[in-house]
Simulated scan of single mutants.
Amino acid sequence: MSRLTPTEAELHAFVDERLEPARRTQVQAWLAANPQQAARVQAWQDDVRRLRAALAGLAAQPAAEPLDLRQLQRGLRQRRQRRWASAAVLVLAVGLGGLGGWQARTVSLTAQNLPMADALQAHRLFASSTALDIQAHDPARLQTWLDQHFARVGQLPDLSGYGLLPVGARLLSNEQGAAALLVFEDGKGQRVSLFLRSPGGHFARMPSGERTEGELAARYWSHGDYNFALVSAADDARGEPLRQALDLSL
C-alpha cells in the first residue's frame, strides 16, 4: 500500500474530521481518483450528518453524556462496516448476473430506506433513559408541550385505559425540521413511545404499516401534516389497539 492510499482507520478519521490538514488533502485526492471508495465514504458522511441532526439537542445535556456519545460513535463505525460488507455481497451478486443480482440490489436499497428507522432509534436512545426535555406525568401538561412545538397536531387520547400514563417528552430534529418523542409507561415499568415528524424525502406520506426490528415493533402512519410511529415491545399485545386510538385522535 502506497503512502497515498489511506488505511481503513484513516478513512474513518477523515469522516470524523480528525486528520491533519496535509493528510486530509492527500486523502481527498485519492478519493477523487477512486469514485467507488468516494461513494463509500460519502455514505459514512451521510450517516454522521443524520446522527448529528437527530442528536442536535444533546448539547444541552449535563456533562455525563460523553460516554454515551463514544458508544454512539462506536455504533456508527460498526454500521459503516456492515454497510461495506453489504456492498461487497451486492458486488458479488451482480457479478454472478441475472435475477439474483437484481434481487440483492432491491434488498440493499430497501434496507437503507426502512420506514421510521429514526423512530426506533429515538426510542432506543431516549425512551428508557432520563434524557427527556420535560417530565410530564400530567396528560394536560404533555398536551400543552406538544401544542407549543407542533401547531397542527391533534389531541392526545387518554391511554390510561391501556394502563399507560405519560412520562415525558423530548424535542428532536432531522433534515425535515422538528421531531418529537413522547414516552408513556405502564405499572410494570414497560414503556412505549409516540414519535412524530414532518414527512421526509423517501416517505412523503407514510403508508400505514408495521415492522419488527429486534425486540421492538414500530407501527407507522400519516395523519394531517405529520408522520407518526408507535414504538413498543414486539410482544406487546396493546400495540395495534394503541395505534388505532392514536390515529383517530392525532
Rank of each mutant, 00 (worst) to 15 (best):
A178D: 12
L159T: 06
H149I: 04
A122Y: 01
H137E: 14
Q135G: 08
G101E: 11
L125P: 02
D186M: 06
A85E: 14
L90N: 12
V153K: 01
W102F: 12
L114D: 01
H149C: 03
A169H: 07
I134E: 02
L109E: 10
Q155H: 13
G177P: 12
N174K: 02
A131N: 05
L181E: 02
R124M: 02
A88L: 14
Q121C: 01
N113F: 05
W102I: 14
Q135V: 14
F150T: 00
Q103A: 14
G97K: 14
S160L: 10
R191P: 00
Q135E: 13
K188S: 13
L165V: 14
A178V: 04
T110E: 12
L120I: 13
S108K: 07
V153C: 06
Q143P: 01
V167E: 01
F150R: 00
G177C: 11
L156I: 08
V89H: 08
T144V: 12
A136T: 10
A87V: 07
D133I: 02
A151M: 07
R82F: 08
Q176F: 10
R170L: 00
T130W: 00
R82G: 06
R191H: 01
G75H: 02
L125S: 11
W102Y: 13
T130Q: 11
Q148T: 13
R82W: 09
L182W: 03
S108G: 07
D147A: 15
R74A: 08
V183D: 00
V107K: 05
A169Y: 02
R124W: 04
N113D: 09
S173K: 10
H149Y: 07
Q103V: 15
K188A: 13
V94K: 12
P139A: 11
H149V: 08
G168K: 05
S173E: 11
S86P: 03
K188I: 05
W102P: 01
Q143W: 03
T130L: 04
Y162M: 09
A136K: 06
A87D: 13
A180M: 12
R152N: 15
A179C: 07
H123C: 01
R82C: 05
P157C: 10
L146F: 09
A104V: 10
S173Y: 04
A85G: 06
A169I: 07
I134H: 00
L182M: 08
S129E: 03
P139E: 10
R74G: 02
S193H: 05
G177F: 09
S86V: 06
R83F: 08
D158M: 14
A122I: 04
G163D: 06
D133N: 04
L172A: 03
Q78M: 12
S173A: 15
V91T: 14
A179E: 03
N113K: 04
S128I: 00
I134V: 15
L125F: 06
F184Q: 07
Y162F: 15
R124H: 07
A117N: 07
R82I: 11
D158N: 15
